[in-house]
Design a protein around this nucleic acid. Structure first.
Lengths: 194, 194, 194, 194
DNA sequence: AATGAATGAGTGTTCATTCAT
DNA sequence: TATGAATGAACACTCATTCAT
């Protein structure tokens, strides 16, 4: 279906590039249109307004990531294995697309509250996956009995997000994918000795 | 020096209130001036520009928090005790000032990248404290040998920040201070059983 | 010729309906096309541009009205009888087509000056009829000798037009056709007693 | 009071000039500001929005005209004398200000329905004066018993308005003030002989 | 120190019209 | 004839900052 609307993805890809290059507040619709190789008005044949470009951008890039994630973790046995997969996939998704990393970690966060709440709606799918892993892990006895699932989910997501943001703010200088194992170990065992 | 300029804090407090009430993008300089009971032009006798109000706001509110924190943890022995103090102080600081919580967790993040980088500069003091606790803990043998201090710091800060943001986005409905112990335990021991 | 092009009238009728319903400035070409059941581009096979639709609309609806009027008044003897016919026909034309009344009295007047001048061209036929009635009436001695024909024509047309516009602006609540006799009497004898 | 705000009238006068010269749809706010010798933003210190300029324009120019009219006709005895005053004042107001005539008779009518309804509100004062004259005239026996006041008012206003509009559309070539007596006579005695 | 009137740069969106099919 | 996707020009309004008083 969307292959039939090549301009839809064309515009979204242009938006990622323009925002990564110029920053959120310097990414006018006309600039995105130019980068996409279409007229300004054409944007509005595919998107309701500028905000809709940004939401759609996030939905397309993260939405399908989350869907695929759901499939992939089914093949894994333990909570730890599943979590390892989530972390490494998350890291490599953004490591493989530097522009997308800049846009999602830095630029899109400058949007107004309303837009960010819509982005959070999309992220809920991700959080649900994390909570699912945790709940199963508790039932199987792998994870601590009495674990506060919401708090644990906040720790996992907060840690991943902070790690990625720090990496992006450091101009993506080091190999974030290589940190997956260490991050997993921290989340699973904490910082205490023994 | 600043005690001699009561309007300085008067304007900062007005800014917190106005931003918490109206949101970042609806907090015009004229609105802040009105709330502070001064003329628009007076703002510019105390602040270089609008951005300077926001940076000063963060510096005043968080800066003194960080300074006091540095003192307080000196009295604690173990890394865990120190971390416990950081978490509970952080939580209670924001639990005690709902407006400040809204401003720092939601509104100020809509600012442009440049401003956020300056905010990060101020936060560095906080991160340094965390890294100090971790380094000491490793040396004393309390914390894992070979712990990646930067990663661990990112986990701690990311977890605290995500926990607070979720709490603010849920309209601060529950008692976040009560979560301190659970969060500490998660960070120290992880999610795994045993 | 135009009977061979049913879409011509189809588009004009659609325009009347769309404009009456949505107002002049909310009557986009695409909306008219949709109402007419044709594609946007098809409009331009029958009309030079949007303005041409509106002029043609006026020409079709008022033009044939004026033509028929010319025929009808031939059967009448006196200037007063002729004028009576003009007034009652004018009122009933618009009373019978509420949408047309809205379009000609309110919406079309929002058009630019150029279009309105073209509409005035079409109206000239109407004004000519009025002046003819007046000139004949003067010659026959029925009307005042020395009557300023242009002024009298302006009074007659201005009165009719204002009466209709007021009626439309009052949502066509009352029976305008019933006012014909009173309006005629006013124009013929004025407001003075005796 | 308004002398203290010289820019208010300065902007209104600029608007009349710009609209008369460039036409309604080519009168951008920036053009009006330039003509008034102020910055674009200054406009919005005195007017809520562009529409507000136009309404205020009409209110200032016609509103005070109507107020003064109310005073002036008190000195006249008969309905005919009062009507004579209204007509000649109306004509001379617009004959004395060619730009104002263009703006009120041609350009302002291209505005949207909403604005025109607000203009009509202002005009109501004028119509009330006319109806007052008519009602008094009937009571005194000067005017026809059983005269339909609303219809008669519509005739008077419609005639005046049509006369002025025709004059403006003919580039104000002739002396409209000279027509006052003839128009009065027509309205008072009608077109019929005897 | 304090005021507040004035400034002027900057942009998302609509819609009449075209033209390849 | 008929289609409808694509075009691109055009503009009101906000608000951080200044400066004469």
């Amino acid at each position: 279906m969307k292959q039939k609307r090549p301009k839809y993805m064309q515009i979204i890809d242009a938006a990622v590039e323009v925002i990564a290059e110029n920053g959120y507040h310097q990414s006018q619709v006309s600039k995105i249109a130019k980068q996409a190789g279409v007229a300004d008005g054409t944007i509005y044949l595919y998107f309701k307004n500028k905000e809709d470009i940004l939401i759609s951008l996030f939905k397309e890039k993260m939405g399908q990531f989350i869907e695929r994630m759901e499939e992939d973790i089914k093949d894994k046995e333990t909570a730890k294995e599943k979590l390892a997969l989530v972390i490494s996939k998350h890291f490599s998704l953004l490591a493989d697309d530097h522009n997308l990393a800049i846009v999602t970690q830095l630029e899109l966060r400058q949007s107004n509250l309303e837009l960010r709440q819509k982005i959070n709606e999309i992220l809920k799918g991700y959080l649900t996956i994390l909570e699912g892993i945790l709940t199963e892990g508790i039932q199987s006895g792998e994870l601590k009995d009495g674990l506060d699932v919401r708090l644990a989910r906040q720790m996992i997501f907060g840690t991943i997000d902070e790690t990625v943001t720090t990496w992006v703010m450091n101009d993506q200088k080091y190999d974030i994918a290589a940190l997956s194992d260490s991050v997993l170990e921290l989340l699973v065992s904490g910082i205490h000795n023994k």
